[in-house]
């Protein structure tokens, strides 16, 4: 699905990594581990098409892509550090906006159902400002459920989630993989995924 060849990156004058190559196929999860500052976030932003690599290639279904390539924008769901929520808007409004921004039309009923699924059913009309960090993350999970994209690129997806939230996330990831999707995630925490589908890439 996605292939990386000899990717290199640097921030300012510091070389972050070079000659990173891997391949992710449908049904596979690639878990990227490594200490802070090794360039995991930079790598994920490049895969999502948010950042230009210093050198190397990113191929989608065998075709070379560039940053902000429409092909990447149509096939990848990127969840970054920031949950992209507006404090002034309710959970429901935030989710509706994010789903629409991803180019999907979803009925209000489905939105509410998705929020129920992530245990935010009682918080539909509360401004996001009063939600906890974990609850904000859960809105992101609802977005993952509503926007069908073959590849998920997740940066520290378990941050701020409680054990129930982590179980929810891993369940969604497993379901995504079994449907033929793929996941690339950076995380410090071991994820409970089917071992056959999971590969590790460790960054020094």
């Amino acid at each position: 699905m996605l292939e990386i060849q000899d990717l290199a990156a640097r921030r300012g004058y510091v070389m972050l990594f070079s000659q990173v190559s891997f391949k992710v196929e449908a049904g596979e999860a690639l878990i990227i581990t490594g200490a802070n500052g090794t360039g995991k976030t930079t790598l994920l932003r490049m895969l999502a098409g948010l950042s230009h690599p210093l050198s190397g290639k990113i191929l989608w279904q065998g075709r070379e892509t560039r940053a902000f390539d429409p092909v990447l924008r149509n096939n990848i769901m990127f969840v970054g550090h920031a949950p992209a929520l507006k404090d002034e808007l309710t959970a429901e409004e935030n989710l509706a906006l994010l789903v629409k921004l991803a180019g999907e039309e979803v009925a209000l009923g489905a939105l509410r159902e998705a929020l129920q699924e992530v245990a935010l059913g009682a918080r539909l009309t509360v401004p996001a400002r009063v939600l906890s960090q974990g609850q904000r993350r859960r809105i992101g999970l609802a977005r993952l459920a509503l926007v069908p994209r073959p590849l998920w690129v997740l940066d520290e997806p378990v941050t701020a989630l409680d054990p129930a939230g982590i179980a929810l996330l891993t369940g969604m990831m497993a379901a995504h993989l079994s449907k033929g999707g793929a996941v690339i995630a950076a995380t410090h925490q071991a994820l409970d995924l089917p071992t056959g589908a999971m590969r590790q890439l460790s960054f020094q």
Partner: peptide, 19 residues
């Protein structure tokens, strides 16, 4: 500024909709 800080701008740039 606020869209940049809370990550919305990232999602806008990655949206299939024209930036």
């Amino acid at each position: 500024a606020s869209d940049y800080a809370d990550g919305t701008l990232e999602q806008m740039a990655l949206s299939p909709l024209p930036l």
